[in-house]
Design a protein around this nucleic acid. Structure first.
Length: 571
RNA sequence: GGGCCUGUAGCUCAAUUGGUUAGAGCAGAGCGCUCAUAACGCUUUGGUUGGGGGUUCGAGUCCCUCCGGGCCUACCA
């Protein structure tokens, strides 16, 4: 039994995430977690909300709530939605937790002891009206290059020129519109990533099995231009983790907080402590997942994220861990994803374009979304959601191939033998062929799952469902029943058992439907079919079952047309 | 500007890393079945692998070039 630590990129607290965010990290991470649990491995699957930073403060100001209350409320919203999608986190934590405060400060202290922190005095734009320093993106003005009057302080969206906030003509706050801006000096801590460059580079070079998307982004940041740069890890904000050196004050850094990108990955670790603390367990409980000196040396740690997160997970966070000089677990495999587009464009939160997690669950059960998103995961390049594709895939795969299989088997059995597994008859050549086919397909499915080839795993699972229909067609129990009811009984007995096997194999993708299949088969046996022959005899003759309701109703053309309009944006 | 990824059947994607005749699913066509959610099964049409050039006994795969799509470029997270 292996031990597998899985983390999904932690979603920002600000607002409800869309399907593109979901398929880029949390959903495939859940698939992998469920699969490994089903294989009997010990899994710790962690996620959390990423709560600090300017956007959270502004979002809270907009609703009139104190930022801590806003975050607590939004954590609840996101938790409910992740439950709704069946995301099986062992702990869904918060980056604002006391555990993360302590651990983030601890890491900063260790990095300082190691001489990897530098204090830098720099100039930043301060807005008197807003009473805060403004990140470059929150300063607007006229572009000196093209004259566009809504250029941002980091870049002009019109002419794409890189800018410095002081380049802008008539700069103003993007928050309040105030032009009362001034440049103030402020002191910040920098993580000296440059001195860890060689170590990080060597480490990345050993990761020959990582997706090319992951390593190429890491190498670019390591080698581009002057190479890996030191990184500011503090900000002048109220909402965040106060800058401390361990539990000691940090002279000169009063009133400052750590930058979200410093504390957010540390929450992966702190979340494990949240998980054990809430059960009153000792620290050893979470440390055996994270400390290689306390049992984590045999843990395989896998991270899931969208490509925009890769630099922080391949370089910044490892720099924090390596730089601490302490034996923390480093990531073993990073699975990164491209973006999911929506019907010819991007998902857009501001324009309400595309399907968001809450809306998705309002119109269809989670399994529909899970299946489509995972079977179309943007692994090799950006992929695209269209309603037409969604409707046809889901109707065909889930309703026709899997759902109808369950339906035809259970209803045929009920009408000929009653609602119990029928006795009699024997297996012949067709059953042997099916067992061989399923055994072979299952091996491929396992290979793809272990390689985290999500789309390939989905295709193989579907092929296993198809094999059941092929078998029924050739064994034709409805024909056999007329001449040789015992033969029909043997076929139906196998087919009913196949429903249980499908439930077990499909559960990582479609957990709710899998649970209903097991429930209608009246069994709690979720044993992985390592021996397919034995697995197809798990439900013995005489075992009672019930005919389930339709597993997946089909999406009609009317619904599709309706949703197409509804989610087109700018409602 | 620089870098990276990507372009394969009408659509969504494969192709064991340079090796026989480029394969699946959906959609289309034909046939079969009648247990089933008008579901299932079988057969089948469909490709100058974005264009051009090169290396090689051999290129979807490697190199050059052009065209299209996307991402990143460090203070949004």
């Amino acid at each position: 039994m292996a031990r597998i630590l899985i983390t999904s990129a932690i979603p920002y607290i600000n607002g409800i995430k869309h399907l593109g965010n979901l398929v880029g990290s949390q959903l495939p991470a859940d698939l992998f977690a469920r699969y490994n649990r089903a294989r009997g491995h010990e899994v710790l699957f962690l996620c959390a909300t990423d709560e600090h930073g300017t956007p959270a403060e502004l979002a809270a100001a907009k609703t009139g709530e104190p930022v801590d209350e806003y975050c607590a409320r939004m954590w609840g919203v996101q938790k409910e939605l992740s439950d709704g999608f069946g995301l099986s986190f062992d702990k869904f934590g918060r980056s604002s937790s006391p555990q993360n405060h302590a651990l983030t400060q601890h890491f900063a202290g260790k990095l300082a002891e190691a001489g990897l922190i530098e204090e830098v005095t720099e100039s930043q734009v301060y807005s008197n009206a807003d009473g805060r320093f403004l990140p470059d993106r929150y300063i607007e003005g006229t572009c000196p290059n093209c004259g566009y009057d809504r250029a941002r302080g980091d870049q002009c969206e019109n002419c794409t020129k890189q800018l410095d906030p002081t380049d802008l003509i008539e700069p103003r706050s993007a928050i309040s519109g105030s032009t009362e801006l001034e440049v103030r000096e402020t002191k910040h801590l920098y993580l000296k990533q440059r001195s860890l460059r060689k170590e990080l580079s060597d480490w990345i070079d050993t990761k020959t099995d990582w997706p090319i998307l992951t390593t190429s982004i890491a190498r670019k940041w390591l080698n581009d231009g002057d190479g890996l740069q030191d990184r500011g890890i503090t900000r002048d904000l109220d909402w965040g983790i106060p800058v401390k050196k361990g539990d000691q004050d940090w002279p000169g850094m009063e009133g400052k907080v750590f930058y979200v990108w410093f504390d957010a990955p540390i929450e992966y670790i702190a979340c494990a402590k949240e998980w054990s603390d809430e059960r009153g367990a000792p620290d050893a409980e979470w440390e055996r997942w994270w400390r290689t000196d306390k049992g984590a040396d045999d843990v395989r740690y896998v991270q899931f994220m969208g490509k925009d997160n890769v630099p922080f997970h391949t370089l910044s966070f490892p720099a924090t861990i390596i730089g601490s000089g302490e034996p923390w677990k480093l990531v073993d495999y990073i699975k990164s994803f491209n973006y999911l587009n929506y019907d010819g464009g991007q998902f857009s939160t501001s324009q309400g374009r595309g399907v968001f997690m809450d809306q998705a669950l309002e119109i269809l059960p989670a399994d529909y979304w899970r299946w489509w998103l995972l079977s179309h995961a943007p692994e090799s390049s950006d992929s695209e959601f269209t309603w037409e594709n969604f409707q046809s895939s889901v109707n065909k795969d889930l309703a026709d191939v899997l759902g109808n299989f369950v339906s035809r088997v259970t209803k045929f059995c009920r009408s000929k033998f009653g609602e119990g597994v029928p006795a009699g008859g024997a297996w012949g050549a067709e059953e042997e062929a099916l067992i061989a086919r399923l055994t072979e397909g299952l091996a491929a499915y396992e290979r793809h799952m272990e390689a985290i080839e999500v789309r390939k795993a989905a295709a193989e699972l579907r092929a296993l469902w198809v094999a059941g229909n092929e078998y029924l067609q050739s064994a034709a129990p409805w024909a056999a029943y007329k001449e040789d009811p015992e033969r029909a009984a043997a076929v139906v007995r196998l087919a009913l058992n196949l429903i249980r096997v499908y439930a077990v194999l499909s559960a990582p993708f479609i957990p709710d439907a899998a649970a209903r299949m097991l429930s209608s088969m009246n069994t709690l046996d979720t044993e992985w079919p390592g021996d397919m022959r034995a697995a197809l005899e798990a439900l013995p003759a005489g075992h009672a079952f019930t005919v389930p309701d339709v597993l997946f109703r089909k999406i009609s053309d009317e619904e599709r047309a309706d949703w197409e309009t509804r989610f087109a944006g700018t409602r």
